[in-house]
Amino acid sequence: MNLFRLVADLMHLVSIFILLLKMQKTRSVAGRCSRISFKTQALYATVFLTRYTDLFANFQSLYNTTMKVFFIASSLYIVFLMKFKFKATNDPRLDTFKAQYVVGGAAALALIVNYAFTVQEVLWTFSIYLEAVAILPQLFMLTKTGEAEVITTHYLFALGTYRGLYLVNWIYRYWTEYYVDWIVWIAGAVQTGLYCDFFYIYFTKVLKGAKFELP
């Protein structure tokens, strides 16, 4: 564990708390222009469920296990809230990204490009590929509505920072322990790349007090 990875994981936690806070505060997932994509949240729940199949078999540390349990539980809780508790305020007409294609693409790629052709490894690889593109329905929704509530942008910023710090962590680990993981690196670079446009607008507008609005 190094500082970059620790802060990255904490930013990931922060992003989930921001999302839960927003949902509880507005009692809905669809404020006037602050919509949260159900598809993205469902994809994240799928990511955690398929990645942490080693939860009981492979004990790394109390930290590792606690985080895994938290990510699985919180993602399922968010999906539950959106599907049942706040269903009426969730507008599927804006959540139109074709998620089945990225799920299919990630599954196909996981079957072809993996470290070992075992059920657990293919599921793990699938989760890595799927996480890389899981934010797309949310970004697509943002593009469609053209603007976002500040708290939604903070959520995306926390998520993007978590991904960016993982890149730094990999460089650090490469130099300090000769850690190499091409599947995770390439998927992670793609995932972080998806946030570039968002980061640009976040820094140039939201942090200067302006509303998040697409040009």
């Binding site: 990931h12 080693d54 492979n58 590792n64 075992t118 490894e121 993982y166």
Partner: peptide
């Protein structure tokens, strides 16, 4: 080292 063992990141 098995492939499973090296997945130490979240």
């Amino acid at each position: 080292e098995s492939a499973e063992a090296k997945h130490d990141e979240l």
